[in-house]
Design a protein around this nucleic acid. Structure first.
Lengths: 341, 341
DNA sequence: TTGAAAGCGCTACCAA
DNA sequence: TTGGTAGCGCTTTCAA
């Protein structure tokens, strides 16, 4: 059977209080000798406190929850993005003595249950959409860091007073500007845009990127051709209109990889003719043929930052900004070629 | 403040025991009316029991730990394999009302600490090597399922008596046989083998695959040329000896992707001349150029199975086999070509 | 069918 | 500097 604080106390001939005090490093409340003695016994039995008991009495736990939202029962942790976020979180958590419980949730109710079951210091939430945000945000009153949840100005204003809510996003506008500027710098003037389908008007990653695409074209006085804006279901149309533009911005590397494959199947050497830039810098980007030029978003870093912010919130430390924007970084490989003068 | 069992009891004018009984579905101990009454109150307050309290008294928790071993501080959950395993585990766990805590550990000591902190039903361990196995195996006496830990016959024999230890592996021998047979069927007779570096003699995934490669060649009376066995550091040598063989077995898709890239850089159309088969079927395999023929290993399935086995162990259900072997599946794409007769 | 009470392991308060 | 003790929310005897 495992050693408890009581047994340690007995063996040391002290009270449980004293043992508790040395465990919790309240050294000013215990004599040096006793500390040494108790620590040796702790060492001997390899004692570590029972978190359940501790959490029960303290109503806190060194436990944080990584919640991933998805409507369907998809295998979300196989999504490389989520996986890397988790990676970043877990690494930091381990270092700081925290534990991470992961859970895939579908609704606010789910969160209610899970947070009632355990005592979480807080949550990091990934994949929350605007429409579920409000309901969700009410469920839990502890600290929450949202990753990549883009809110409208109005909603943001509403929750400004909630000092324990934080948003860690990529600066998608900046990232996308970076992408388009790179293309322009390389001499491209006819630039297309490909993204997953999204709800127009609703704040989102894609919306930001699209806006930046528009603005950057305008800034450089390049033509914007509505036809050149594609959804992921329109590969065929891209193929047909291929001669019209010389470069395309694709809002994700994975989608870019799919497009490249599709195009290559139709036409062996398309990529000599079309420049392509993606987002994310997934592992595979550099292994593609041609190696994919992309905007690196560094999700593990995002996870790490989210974690640290969460801990700050939990400790009621001041934060200036409610929305943290992480910059994207241009990774220039060969899929974007210089236009001949 | 949250509702407790006590408050429910008060509101229902019954004792906590009775409430506890309805929560735990001991319907024969409570009258129908009280059950209805109590359940309605539970519903009303959206009450769910506090796991810490429950775990404390029951010494169990519906909590399982996914422990990933790594010597260094790598971002292991960004490894697509681990991520998918987690995916499979988490999905099942959620369905059955379990929770998954993930932790990256470096040593047996780490495990000791973490398991003392929380009350785990059991652990699923990934990435455990033979040399750390023994020490590790002693630390915890609850159920453990090891994923892809290959042990020697001797070690396996030693722990045969531990009925709560289980191993879920891919049948790497079968998988590799499948790969080589496929190549042979397509007319290849000169077949090379590429793997990461590994310790010869120590049971491992690669060792199994190598052995199957050897045996299958022999079975078909094909020549085995020791020179054609490569490590991941020997891409250059592969390039130099490229004319000697027509196909290569690569023990992982990621490695295969790297090789293809390397080779293409040297020689534009190598892949017309060399057939290649990988293992894993990573997401990217089908997006490669050419699309990679591979042996699908289905890690999320592995995770799901591991989870179910763990629960069986925890419930002390009988298991016949201590080592579960999951079959690989040939996914035939275009990277393996038929030899001309 | 119901309830009183002990106790899981720990912390925190108060008293010595 | 030390210890006694209440109590966190729950389950589990045992008795009624």
């Amino acid at each position: 059977m495992r050693v408890t604080i009581k047994q340690i106390a007995e063996e040391a001939n002290v009270s449980v209080t004293t043992v508790s005090n040395v465990i919790n490093k309240r050294s000013h409340r215990v004599s040096k000798e006793k500390i040494a003695l108790i620590e040796s016994i702790i060492e001997k039995y390899n004692y570590t406190p029972n978190m359940n008991a501790r959490s029960l009495v303290q109503s806190s736990s060194n436990l944080i929850g990584l919640l991933y939202f998805s409507a369907d029962d998809d295998f979300v942790f196989s999504d490389p993005f989520t996986a890397e976020v988790l990676s970043g979180i877990e690494k930091q958590a381990k270092e700081m003595g925290y534990f991470v419980l992961v859970h895939n949730v579908h609704s606010a109710e789910d969160v209610k249950t899970i947070q009632r079951n355990w005592r979480f210091e807080g949550f990091i939430m990934v994949g929350v959409r605007v429409k579920e945000f409000v309901a969700l945000n009410e469920v839990f009153d502890g600290p929450v860091v949202y990753i990549d949840t883009h809110l409208s100005k109005a909603t943001l204003q509403q929750i400004q007073s909630q000092t324990n809510r934080l948003f860690v996003n990529t600066n998608d506008y900046q990232a996308s500007t970076l992408a388009v500027e790179h293309l322009i710098q390389y001499g491209h003037e006819k630039i297309a845009f490909l993204s997953f389908d999204y709800i127009v008007g609703e704040p989102s990653v894609i919306h930001e990127r699209y806006q930046a695409y528009l603005d950057t074209l305008k800034k450089h006085q390049l033509i914007f051709e509505p036809r050149w804006v594609y959804k992921d279901s329109e590969f065929d149309r891209i193929y047909q209109e291929l001669d019209e533009f010389t470069a395309i911005v694709v809002t994700g590397d994975y989608l870019a990889a799919k497009l490249v494959k599709f195009l290559k199947n139709r036409k062996k050497h398309v990529m000599d003719q079309l420049s392509i830039i993606g987002f994310d810098d997934i592992t595979f980007a550099e292994l593609m043929d041609p190696p994919l030029t992309t905007i690196r978003l560094n999700p593990s870093n995002k996870g790490a930052i989210a974690f640290h912010q969460l801990i700050r919130l939990a400790k009621h430390e001041e934060t200036n900004e409610q929305v943290l924007l992480l910059e994207g970084e241009l990774i220039s490989r060969n899929s974007v070629q210089k236009m001949k003068e």
